[in-house]
Simulated scan of single mutants.
Amino acid sequence: MSVNKNIVFDVVGTLASYDKLYEAVETTLGQRLREQGIKVPMFGYLWIEVAEREYAIVYRVLWKCGIEEPRKFINEKEIEAIVQGYADMEMRPGAAECISKLRNAGFTVWGLTMDDYKRVRGYFERSGIDMPTENLASCDSTQIGKPDPQAYKPLLDQLSSEGNKPWFAAAHQWDVAAARRTGFRGAYCTVWEGEALMDVFGDMDVVAETLPEMADRVIKMAR
C-alpha cells in the first residue's frame, strides 16, 4: 500500500505569525491598555480567539477586559489601523523551511484557511513561498467554517487514497483535533499556544515545538 504524502496546513496562526497584528495593537493602543492593567498579548489573544476576525466585536472584547466605555476608548481609525495588522502578517520563522523539507520528502503541500483568500495568498507571495492556486482553499467558498467537519471533508475526500489518510497540520490544537475526527492524521505545533492539552483535545499523531521539527516528525512517520 502506498504512503499518502499530502499535508494540509492551516495558514493564519500556523504558517503566518500574528506578530504584525500585535505590533499594530501595541502602536495604537499599547500604552492606554497598560494604564488599564491590560497587557497587549492578552487583548490580542482574546480578540483573535473570540472575535473570529470580525472587527466590530473589538468593543465587546474591550468591555470584557474591563473597559467601561469601549466606544470612547477606541475610534474607527484606530480599529482600521489594527485590522491592517492582519493584512501585513508575515510567515513565521521556519515556515519556509518546514514546507521545503516536506516537499523535498515527496509531500504535496496544501492550505485550508477560514480567512480571506486574497489576503492569505498574499502571505505566501510576500514570503517567496510558492503555493499553487489550486492547492490553497478557503472556507469562504463553502461558507462552512472550521471546526465543522464539512469544512475539512472536501480536501479529505480529494486527498484520501486506498484507505490512506492525508495529514492536517496546525498550531491551533482545536483545528488539528477536528481534522483528526474527520479522518485526517494530525500534526500539532505548539509555537502559538505553548502547551499541548491532550486531556482536552485528545491524542495527536505528531507534536512539535517548531514547524521544521514538525515536518521532520511527519516525514519520519511517513517512511
Rank of each mutant, 00 (worst) to 15 (best):
R32M: 14
R32E: 11
R32G: 05
L33S: 05
L33D: 08
L33Y: 10
L33E: 09
R34L: 13
R34P: 05
R34F: 06
E35W: 07
Q36S: 09
Q36E: 15
Q36M: 09
G37Q: 05
V40R: 08
V40A: 02
V40G: 03
P41Q: 05
P41I: 01
M42S: 09
M42I: 12
M42K: 15
F43P: 00
F43T: 00
G44N: 00
Y45A: 05
Y45P: 00
L46G: 08
L46Q: 12
L46C: 12
L46A: 12
I48R: 15
I48V: 04
E49M: 09
A51C: 07
A51G: 00
E52A: 11
E52P: 00
E52I: 08
R53Y: 04
E54M: 13
Y55D: 10
Y55S: 12
A56R: 15
I57G: 01
I57E: 03
V58I: 12
V58L: 04
Y59C: 01
R60G: 01
R60W: 08
V61I: 14
W63M: 11
K64E: 11
K64A: 15
K64G: 14
C65I: 00
C65Y: 03
G66N: 12
I67L: 10
I67E: 15
E68S: 12
E68A: 12
E69S: 15
E69Y: 09
E69N: 14
E69V: 14
P70G: 09
R71Q: 12
R71C: 15
R71L: 15
K72H: 13
K72M: 10
K72N: 14
F73K: 01
F73Q: 02
N75G: 14
N75T: 10
N75R: 00
E76G: 06
K77S: 15
K77W: 10
E78S: 09
E78K: 10
E78G: 08
E78P: 06
I79V: 08
I79K: 12
E80Y: 11
A81M: 07
A81D: 03
A81I: 04
A81C: 04
G85T: 02
G85M: 06
Y86I: 08
A87C: 07
A87P: 00
A87E: 10
D88Y: 01
D88I: 08
M89P: 01
E90K: 01
E90V: 02
E90S: 05
R92E: 07
R92L: 15
R92W: 04
R92Q: 09
P93Y: 09
G94R: 01
A95R: 00
E97N: 06
C98R: 09
C98S: 13
S100P: 01
S100Y: 09
K101A: 03
K101E: 07
L102D: 04
N104R: 13
N104D: 15
A105N: 13
A105Q: 13
G106A: 03
W110Q: 05
G111N: 06
L112P: 03
T113A: 02
T113P: 04
M114L: 10
M114R: 13
M114C: 14
Y117K: 13
K118E: 13
